[in-house]
């Protein structure tokens, strides 16, 4: 693996400040009831985990994640306008307003989606990787999985399947310390989550400080190369969530230990600051570029909000039923209306 170039580092900074601006804006819009619903899981604090690891991928590789998916979508280059419109359930949203915050995806970016059932996307990842193996391609499927999901059956079955079939999956466990409100050591007999790989004969690349994008990138590059040539790999990213599990999370208000812990992470392990320090320690001509990225992030997100708020909502029976099935005239002819929903 080559050390990241100056251009790469600056681009990572651009991605990270864009994510942070996007997520904090979502948080504010939710409080103002301009984004509604009950689910909104923000990537603030996690930025280096996604940015550093996805930098190790090439364009033909695949990415899939759970419901904390906004950051992943933005890193892959999805249009922030379409992502914000999806937050607001608009027709112009990336999923036409049908999916919401937890169901972003983009076929054009090989982004197979955010999924809302904990662990539900893990066998899908194995299936996507199986297609690559089946057709003799060496594309990797990078799969993000939370610490909580490592305790459910999908994790066990999917990792085991990836091992026996030598599937090119990089399983990245994003360990942010909590499954909703349950600490890792109250939920998992094995608290070094990457060691679960051993149970399946999968190579573990260990535990990484995922507040540091450079460390994330270094390990992810090795794991991606390994997966491409051999089969599944596991990495554990140790990170932290700044906005709790999701918008329903009131723990940080109720528990002093947790709010102190959050402050400590933000003060000492802030991923954007860590990256910025690293860039500034190597290059002395970057101030304008960094400031430019910060200003761009604000502008891009503001434009996304304007676009989303001006967009139409889906409405009527046709929008409700569309894409329940692939259109199929022969079915439509005979279907009882309850079974129809065919465009």
């Amino acid at each position: 693996m080559a050390a990241p170039t100056k251009a790469m580092l600056l681009d990572w900074y651009r991605q990270m400040v864009l994510i942070r601006e996007f997520e904090e804006t979502c948080h504010r819009l939710y409080e103002e009831k301009r984004i509604t619903g009950v689910y909104l899981h923000l990537y603030s604090g996690h930025e280096a985990s996604g940015v550093g690891s996805m930098a190790a991928l090439r364009k033909s590789d695949h990415v899939i994640t759970a419901y904390r998916d906004h950051g992943i979508a933005l890193i892959l280059g999805m249009d922030p306008k379409a992502v914000m419109a999806e937050m607001m359930g608009k027709k112009t949203g990336s999923s036409g307003g049908k999916g919401g915050s937890m169901h972003l995806a983009s076929k054009d970016h090989n982004f197979w989606g955010g999924y809302a059932i904990v662990g539900g996307h893990l066998p899908l990842a194995a299936g996507i990787a199986l297609e690559a193996r089946y057709h003799g391609k060496d594309d990797v499927t990078m799969t993000y999985v939370g610490d909580g999901a490592t305790n459910n059956g999908y994790f066990h079955e999917s990792l085991n399947m990836s091992a026996i079939w030598d599937l090119p999956v990089v399983w990245i466990i994003e360990n942010n310390g909590y499954a909703m409100g349950t600490e890792v050591d109250r939920a998992s007999g094995q608290v070094e989550l990457h060691r679960k790989a051993e149970a399946y004969g999968i190579k573990s690349f260990g535990r990484v400080d995922a507040q540091n994008a450079l460390e994330v990138y270094a390990v992810a590059s090795k794991a991606v190369d390994y997966a491409r040539a051999n089969g599944p790999a596991v990495i554990e990213h140790v990170t932290y969530r700044y906005r709790g599990h999701g918008v329903s999370d009131k723990q940080y208000d109720a528990r002093e230990d947790m709010s102190a812990e959050l402050k400590e992470w933000m003060a000492t392990r802030e991923p954007i600051v860590i990256l910025r320090d690293c860039i500034e320690s190597q290059y002395n001509d970057v101030a304008d570029t960094l400031a430019g990225h910060e200003a761009d992030a604000k502008r891009i997100v503001a434009e996304a909000v304007t676009f989303a708020e001006a967009s139409e909502l889906p409405s009527g029976y046709e929008d409700l039923m569309r894409n329940t099935y692939v259109s199929s005239e022969r079915v439509h002819k005979t279907a009882h209306t309850i079974g129809a929903g065919i465009d």
């Binding site: 695949h62 197979w112 539900g120 996307h121 893990l122 066998p123 899908l124 990842a125 194995a126 299936g127 996507i128 990787a129 199986l130 297609e131 690559a132 089946y134 059956g153 999908y154 079955e157 999917s158 085991n160 399947m161 026996i164």
Partner: peptide
């Protein structure tokens, strides 16, 4: 496959989405 019905169900979904 192993005796892994959750994975059988879900791997089929991923493989189908990917073109198989």
């Amino acid at each position: 496959t192993p005796i892994s019905e959750m994975a059988i169900g879900g791997v089929a979904v991923g493989a189908a989405m990917a073109g198989l």
